[in-house]
C-alpha cells in the first residue's frame, strides 16, 4: 500500500514526537546535569555520581525525606480508606451532582487557598483552643483532605463498571454484608484502590504549598529543596530532582497498569 505524504498517521506521529520532546527535553537536560562532575550547567567535565553521594550523606535532606515518606504513607492509608468508602457510598446511595461537586472541590481549588484555609482552621481550633503545635500531624491531615478527593474519583471509575448483582449473589448465597465486602467487593475493586493509593502517595510526596503553610517548624522534602534553591541552586538539586522524577514515573506507571480495565 502506498503511503501518501498527507497521510494523517504520519502527521500524528510527528506531532507526538514533538510533544514528547517538548515535555521531556528539560527533564533530560536535568538528568544529564545531575551526572556532570562540575555540577555547572555551563560545561560538561565528565561523568560522576558525586552529587548523588553528597545527597545521601546530607542529614537535612535525609531527615526531610523521612518526614515526607511518613506523611505520604500515613495520609495515603487514611485517605484511601476514607475515599474508598466514600466512593462506595456516592456510587450506591446517591445520585446528587451537588454532592459529587462538593467532594471534588478540595482537589481542584488552588493549593494556596486550601493551605490558607487549613492554616486558619488549625490556628483557631488546634493551636488556639487546644494549644497544640503544628507539625507532622497537621501536614498529614491536610494531605488527607485533598487526597480523599482523588482516591474517591479513581475508585469510582472502577465502581462504575461494577455489576451490583455480584454483591447480591454473594448475599443470596449466604454471606452477610461484611463477608460480602471482604470476599467480593474489595477484591474486585482492589486494583482501583491500589492505583488510587499510588496516586495519593505521589501527590503527597510532591506537595509543597499546603505543607509549607501547615508544617510549623517541620521540614518536608519539598520544603527542604525549596530552601536549598532560595540560597542559590546547588548541583545536589539536580540529583534529587532526578530521583524524584524516577520515583514518580514508576508510581504512575504502576497505577496505570492497575486501573487498566481487566476482564
Amino acid at each position: 500500500m502506498r503511503v501518501s505524504p498527507l497521510d494523517p498517521g504520519r502527521w500524528l506521529g510527528a506531532h507526538l514526537g514533538l510533544v514528547l520532546l517538548f515535555l521531556y527535553l528539560p527533564i533530560a537536560v536535568l538528568i544529564a546535569l545531575s551526572f556532570n562532575d562540575s555540577g555547572l550547567p555551563t560545561a560538561w567535565t565528565g561523568f560522576s555520581t558525586r552529587w548523588y553521594e553528597s545527597v545521601v550523606t546530607d542529614e537535612k535532606i535525609l531527615g526531610s525525606a523521612a518526614n515526607t515518606i511518613i506523611i505520604g504513607a500515613i495520609s495515603t492509608i487514611i485517605a484511601t480508606a476514607i475515599g474508598t468508602l466514600l466512593a462506595l457510598g456516592l456510587e450506591r446511595l446517591t445520585n446528587n451532582a451537588l454532592l459529587d461537586g462538593l467532594v471534588f472541590v478540595p482537589g481542584i481549588i488552588p493549593d494556596i487557598v486550601l493551605a490558607i484555609a487549613l492554616l486558619s482552621f488549625y490556628n483557631l481550633v488546634f493551636t488556639g483552643l487546644l494549644g497544640l503545635k503544628l507539625g507532622l500531624w497537621s501536614v498529614i491531615v491536610a494531605h488527607v483532605v485533598f487526597n480523599i478527593t482523588f482516591v474517591t474519583a479513581i475508585v469510582r471509575t472502577r465502581l462504575r463498571h461494577f455489576d451490583i448483582s455480584i454483591e447480591e449473589a454473594s448475599l443470596d448465597l449466604g454471606a452477610n454484608e461484611i463477608t460480602t465486602f471482604r470476599r467480593i467487593t474489595l477484591p474486585i475493586i482492589l486494583p482501583g484502590v491500589i492505583a488510587a493509593a499510588l496516586v495519593a502517595f505521589t501527590l503527597s510526596v510532591d506537595e509543597f504549598v499546603v505543607a509549607f503553610f501547615t508544617a510549623g517548624t517541620t521540614i518536608t522534602f519539598p520544603i527542604q529543596v525549596y530552601s536549598m534553591i532560595r540560597f542559590g541552586g546547588t548541583p545536589e538539586i539536580n540529583a534529587i530532582a532526578t530521583v524524584v522524577v524516577f520515583v514518580s514515573f514508576v508510581l504512575i506507571l504502576a497505577s496505570q497498569r492497575l486501573t487498566r480495565e481487566q476482564v
Partner: peptide
C-alpha cells in the same frame, strides 16, 4: 435478610465472581 432465606437466585447477568475460579464460585 437475603442470606438467611432458603431460596437461591440465578441472576440475569449471571453475576459470577470474576476473581474466583468456577470451583470457588460454586463452593462459595
Amino acid at each position: 435478610r437475603p442470606y438467611r432465606r432458603p431460596l437461591n437466585m440465578m441472576f440475569q447477568s449471571y453475576a459470577l465472581f470474576p476473581h474466583m475460579t468456577v470451583f470457588d464460585n460454586i463452593a462459595y
